[in-house]
Design a protein around this nucleic acid. Structure first.
Lengths: 227, 227
DNA sequence: CCAAAAGTGTTTCGGATACACCCATGC
DNA sequence: GCATGGGTGTATCCGAAACACTTTTGG
């Protein structure tokens, strides 16, 4: 049995690299998607992976994740949550890399830019059709997706995946594709209309039979429901 | 906007130390307790902190946490969960230390040994009477406690805090002190007896009016309910 | 005008809560 | 024997789930 000296940092750092990896979720073309990037160098050259980067000296891990989001999708102040930290010995085949993962939710209003420039190196990949991922990113992504599902059941997060105005049907479809289950239309409407952050714009979405009403979010009120 | 090169580990490690800190919870003398150790060196010399240690070269963070538990309370194979990773720039005043926190639940059958030897450096501190903690350990402990509460509401974790045999009243008291609310006796009994992992030992606990029945856990069945 | 989708209310069910009496034991 | 705590069953409440018809619009 050791004395409490175990509480000190007694050992040298073995040049462990610290990184942040980010599962950036979006919703488009009727499916939940995650942003993947293609590795340009070994190891796992040519594999798709979650975007990630090394934590800089003057940065927190959260700061690293924020920076990735700025660089890749040019957004700030969107919901982002820490998921977990992965430290298996051989998760990176060459050197010791410990990574902390986050997930983030971006609206389709924001996630166009990058797609045009690096079509061959970046993709919004449907969660139904994931390729093999490099490193342990499949496990990291699965954990992030599970956490997203857990949180969505407890708070109305999914609206961050919708454009500025949307129909309730569209909101329901986002919920359904994240949770992977069908929801009753009337129960769903009742439930989310019970919140006070949905504003009926009094406009109707053209081009769709039935003439569905468009809603938008009162951001300041939505914040009361988060966390 | 950066190209996907952000996905590579391009920067040098700045000798960031990686540690694991552990909120080890136990239940004794009618209250939920957490194991604290007293810092023997600067910074925060003399302050109480959560037990923690540096991740070794051949170790995962989880391995570090397991080692702490072996050294401090001499237990293995008890429930342990990762809570979060803390990377604020000045959380350690001298060097950069990033820590990943865990919480663990130990039974009173296990948590005697250390207390005798290092009475002045280790204590099982009631969660109601926490001293000021060094570093950001108060925040880490609060987060761990919140996570414990969340998980307890969803799965029957608290039995790991009880001795081998116990009365339902004792189990209820553990639940009540973790959740911080009073529970109805009959509803509580109904709920946990509905699980199949409680075995009535047919013995009664002596020395208590009413002659309460003693129960024990069928570990293999309990496992079905965890995670 | 007809097909497709949107909008709306009520009933039912199940789990959680509230609650009161009898029984066993310690002193 | 009496005070204290243990053990048990039922009525109620509330949120979730199930369910069908009318209205609006596009073609």
């Amino acid at each position: 049995m050791n004395p409490p000296s175990t509480t000190q940092v007694t050992t040298r750092s073995h040049s462990v690299a610290l990184t942040a990896d980010c599962a950036i979720f979006g919703y488009s073309d009727d499916s939940l998607r995650v942003l993947l990037v293609r590795r340009a160098v070994e190891p796992f050259k040519g594999f798709w992976v979650l975007p990630g980067g090394a934590m800089q000296q003057d940065e927190t891990l959260r700061g690293t994740a924020d920076r990735l989001l700025r660089d890749l999708v040019n957004v700030e102040n969107i919901p982002i949550r820490q998921v977990g930290t992965y430290s298996a010995l051989k998760r990176h085949p060459i050197r010791r890399v410990v990574t902390t993962s986050y997930y983030a939710l971006v609206s389709p209003d924001d996630h166009d830019p990058i797609a045009r420039e690096h079509l061959d190196q970046v993709m919004w990949c449907s969660m139904d059709k994931l390729p093999e991922l490099g490193f342990d990113h499949r496990e990291i992504l699965d954990d992030a997706y599970e956490k997203l599902k857990d949180e969505l059941r407890q708070q109305p997060l999914a609206f961050h995946l919708l454009p500025e105005s949307f129909t309730l049907k569209e909101a329901q479809e986002v919920y359904e594709s994240i949770l992977g289950e069908d929801l009753d239309r009337r129960n769903f409407r009742r439930k989310i209309l019970a919140y006070d952050f949905l504003i009926n714009t009094e406009e109707k979405k053209p081009g769709i039979k039935g003439g569905p009403e468009l809603y938008r979010i009162d951001d300041s009120k939505l914040e009361n429901h988060l966390q």
